[in-house]
Design a protein around this nucleic acid. Structure first.
Lengths: 121, 121
DNA sequence: ATCGTTGTATTAGTATATTAATACAATAAT
DNA sequence: ATTATTGTATTAATATACTAATACAACGAT
């Protein structure tokens, strides 16, 4: 899975989002050890400090915890992961609907467009 | 309509997006004169240079055209406006679906969530 | 005991975004 | 003719993001 970073948003925010996605989607399973800060940074092509900031953000949310010398681990709290997943989905849903509304689409039209897109793939 | 600017993306990009939304949604009708750069900047609480950059972006797309001394006008090309509107909608749609996919939701689940949201409002 | 890896912290340097302060040419209004 | 407003351009200053280069303490592995 590539680290597709754009320059239109702060790098650490994008990193935090990608890391979170990997956790809630199960790509980083509960309880497993994550790659080291330096490895993740190298993989993503960013400075370790920037990756560290992203990881600190996840730590604030309880999604990961750092063991000072052995590494960093994904939380084992499946409920928290699930809650986070659904909260993020709702957030995306709300933002998407608002954008479509501002473009002049009704909720019905938006729903229809999404359905059409799904069927065409 | 407020100018709700965040600091997680470049200001001029946000301004350009809002201005575009106002045009494609008909809030700024085809052919009408827009407020001056300075007025728009004051209204949005940004520097005139920043607003100018956003407007230059719209001008590149042909959505507005500047009459050197009388002001700036929305294009009269209704087709261009319509095309832009649908292109932006498709773009939002694609981005949204991709984000939901990365969160671990299938297209069907995503479609269902959107439908539920619409019905609950 | 030594070495390497871990997370974390600090300081400085660089690049970029935004603001600030003007300036200018063109023209409509007076 | 003068004045005010228009879009546009320029230069400097400031704030912030990111990188770079280290350093340190803790601990497992050898």
């Amino acid at each position: 899975m590539p680290w597709q970073l754009k320059n239109d948003r702060q790098i650490w925010l994008q990193l935090a989002q990608i890391l979170t996605q990997r956790i809630v989607s199960g790509q980083y399973a509960p309880g497993v050890r994550m790659p080291s800060v330096r490895d993740l940074a190298a993989e993503a092509g960013v400075n370790p400090n920037t990756m560290q900031r992203a990881l600190a953000y996840l730590e604030e949310r309880g999604l990961v915890s750092a063991q000072r010398n052995t590494g960093r681990y994904v939380t084992q709290d499946a409920q928290l992961i699930s809650d986070t997943r659904h909260a993020l989905a709702q957030e995306e849903l709300t933002l998407f609907c608002e954008k479509m509304r501002l473009l002049g689409f009704t909720p019905e039209e938006t729903s229809q467009l999404l359905k059409s897109k799904g069927e065409s793939e």
